Simulated scan of single mutants.
Amino acid sequence: MTPARCFTTALRQCCTNMACAPLFMAAIVLYAAYYCWPYMAQLPDHIHCAIVDADGSPLSRELVMEFRATPDLNILQVTENRQEAILAMKRAEVSAILEIPPHFGRDVAAAVPTAITLTADGAYLVGGRISTAGASGPLEAAASRAVAAWLRAQGASASELARMEMQAPALVTVAAYNTISGYLNFAVPIVFVIVFQTLMCAGMGMLFNAWYMAAARPAVLAAALGSPLCLFCVQMSVFFLCLFWTLFVEGPVFYLQGINSFQNIPATLGMCAAFSLAVSSLACLLSLLLGPTHFVMQAVVLSALPCVFISGNLWPTQNIPFFFQCLGWLFPSTPGSYGIIRASQCGADVAEAAPYMAHLLLLAAVYFVLACLEARRQARKAAQEEQGAPHAA
């Protein structure tokens, strides 16, 4: 079978073989249509909070009582030590920290601008975003009520109270990670990169599994095992599918969902092409290694969630052991997510994205060389078995 015939046969099989066609043709469409919907307008109630009262004034105590009485907030800890509240957040006991600054009561009485700080842990992307969005409204209302009540007790005039009601103390939200506090423009593009990697590897693995398990070995598989050029052409069928879906999601899908994309067109195209090539090479290697078994889907799908976290984008790098940080850079999803979100969503130019492109191209070359070695090993094994069969007969 010629290399061109290998490419067309593999591409047709990817689109029609029911072992892999749902992954290649339908899964990404479903992800693109439904992935963002649960997070578009979701606000929580009973947000677990810790309060750091660095003021200790009558006003700050009044403010703490007002916060405790707010139905949407669940105040679990009140302390003067900020580190205690941070440790509670690290232990996942609270999802937000409210900080009343020193001299808060004095500043309010003197009409000096002041601020109550709401800190949310952005390492939990959805939780951090919805915690700040869900808590900010009740906090502003509670602060306004407490300040107005305190000023009224101090004998403030009606005009002063009206002014304070119109100009309540500022609420400043500070994210511990992902400082843009974004989900659609930050997390969704990163997660889609890992979705592409998972679906392409699983799809190609299932296709090879179907070929290996066929009663008669297909000519395209025999050609791929016997010739590196034919193997490369089979890989190219998955490359073009991955590139098509990557551009489809980064283009019309993100445009319809209001997500920044293609902020720098040349860099985005280069990143998508390099990422697709690395993913197709990885898929080719995994298909040869796991294709003769029945565990392709299990192995690929189980690796998806760890890839989300060890990439260092959706989870702070300092929280990841060094070994897993190094392991993360062996997967295309890590340099792919770093480069694509910078080029497509943030507008980085080709020079800024070049290190990630080079990393992906290096991964693609290494994976393909390993795939060729595995294909040669399997071809030799098959030849030895064929030679041994006549002697046994």
Rank of each mutant, 00 (worst) to 15 (best):
R380A: 06
G312C: 06
S280D: 02
A153C: 08
C242T: 04
A162S: 14
Q318P: 06
Q325R: 15
L151D: 02
R82D: 13
C272P: 00
L286C: 06
A371S: 06
C15M: 10
V366A: 14
A143R: 05
Y338T: 04
D349G: 11
N185D: 15
M164D: 04
T79M: 08
G339M: 02
S281F: 00
S60L: 13
S303K: 06
L43P: 11
C233Y: 04
L256Y: 14
A353P: 00
F7D: 00
L290P: 00
Y124G: 14
L231Q: 01
L290Y: 04
P101A: 09
L256F: 15
R106A: 15
R61V: 10
A353R: 01
P71L: 09
L229C: 10
N313T: 07
V64A: 02
R152P: 04
A219E: 12
S60P: 06
Q167E: 13
R68C: 15
L125N: 03
L231M: 03
T334K: 00
A133C: 11
P335I: 06
A187S: 13
V366L: 10
P228Q: 00
G339C: 09
S95L: 14
A176N: 11
M40N: 12
R12F: 13
A382F: 03
F208H: 08
V126S: 13
C49L: 15
A142M: 01
A133S: 14
N209H: 11
A224S: 15
G203V: 04
A382P: 04
A120R: 10
Q13N: 12
G56Y: 12
I97V: 11
Y255D: 07
L361G: 05
P292H: 00
Y367I: 04
I86K: 07
Y212V: 07
A224K: 10
I265A: 03
Q263V: 01
G134D: 03
M204F: 11
L225N: 06
S276L: 02
V234Y: 04
G128M: 05
A109Y: 05
Q257C: 05
T8L: 11
Q387L: 15
F295G: 14
C14I: 07
M25C: 15
L171A: 10
S344C: 06
V52W: 02
F248D: 05
I265Q: 05
S159L: 10
R377S: 13
S157W: 05
L221I: 04
D55G: 10
V253N: 03
I265F: 11
P58N: 01
V112M: 07
V188L: 12
L290T: 03
R342Y: 12
A41V: 10
M1D: 11
V279F: 06
L30Q: 08
Y39E: 00
A156G: 08
V253M: 06
Y34Q: 10
A33E: 06
T70M: 07
L269F: 09
S60A: 15
E66H: 03
Q384F: 07
R380H: 08
S144R: 08
W315D: 01
M200R: 07
N185R: 09
A41Q: 11
D53C: 12
A141H: 08
L59P: 00
A351C: 07
L241A: 08
T293I: 07
C20Q: 01
A153Y: 08
Y124D: 14
V296I: 06
A135Q: 02
G128A: 07
A141M: 12
C14L: 14
H391K: 12
Y338N: 08
